[in-house]
Amino acid sequence: MTTLTLSRALNEGLRKALEANAKALIMGEDVGKLGGVFRVTDGLQKDFGEARVIDTPLAESGIIGTAIGLALRGYRPICEIQFDGFIFPAFDQIVSQLAKMRYRSRGAVKLPIVVRVPFGGGIGAVEHHSESPEALFAHTPGLRVISCGDPADAYTMIQQAASSDDPVLFFEPKRRYWDKAEVDTEGGLAAALPMDSARVLVEGSDLTLLCYGPMVRTCAEAAVAAASDGRSLEVIDLRSLAPLDVETIFASVRKTGRCVVVHEAVVTGGLGAEIAAQVTQECFYSLEAPVLRVGAYTTPYPPSRLEEHYLPDLDRILDAVDRSFGY
């Protein structure tokens, strides 16, 4: 066991991925000499060379489009999109090409490409640097969408994503990059939870709290706070947003009878809406209250001086828990 920050855990995981497969590549803006603006790829170009850790021109569509071509040639690119809000120039390549080419080819083509996206707010950034666009990709058939919430998952999930033969959108909670935790860098991936499985992070009996990415830590804290009020919250880190591990969700909600979904993304049309619909459909007779959602308001991301009002926090989550128990 080693104590690592989440960004360092990703770095170690990427190193393992590059070692595991000679066809694995890293490509993106500033990922080489600089090591990425968050230093996630620090030192990798030095150790693996410029042909495998590629500083690309500043063009996101180009990053994904050429990654597709490299994958067609047998390579396994791991792309970095520098910030969530910069993914949209690549949106067409991701949605129209990356997600659909295998289907178009009736299975002849595979595109083992990882798209790493630092996402979410809370770092006092300027516009376009704090967004949570994951639902747009979870809505797109042909992509796997996953997110890590702590350093241990960061380390294993980035390796699992790199070894997947499907395109994977990998959302990294950028404000948790500096969170530290114990990571087992000795054990292999065999014992790791599959990347498309949810994890019951905190067991509880009264209410199911669903979250992912940056909200995992906040929800774990909410469970501690709620316990002092005598409420036992079960916290589930979804980890995979497409596909959703609905069996784990349903089993928990059937047990607790209450469900609150938490994400930084805009509530309208978000993952919470999908989960609420599915839980209502499958767990209807177990529910004591409607599924509630905690997330961003239906506004663009506000200036950073306002972000603490905009982002879900401990109190907003506990408020939703209270409302759920009010039914």
């Binding site: 569509s61 180009g62 597709i68 071509g69 067609l72 067409d92």
Partner: peptide
Amino acid sequence: HLYTIVIGSQTLHATGYAMGIQRD
């Protein structure tokens, strides 16, 4: 390669493929 209907997208795929040839 497969026909590509979105205009121009395939030029990037072709370029990436060519970068793969270099790496090979």
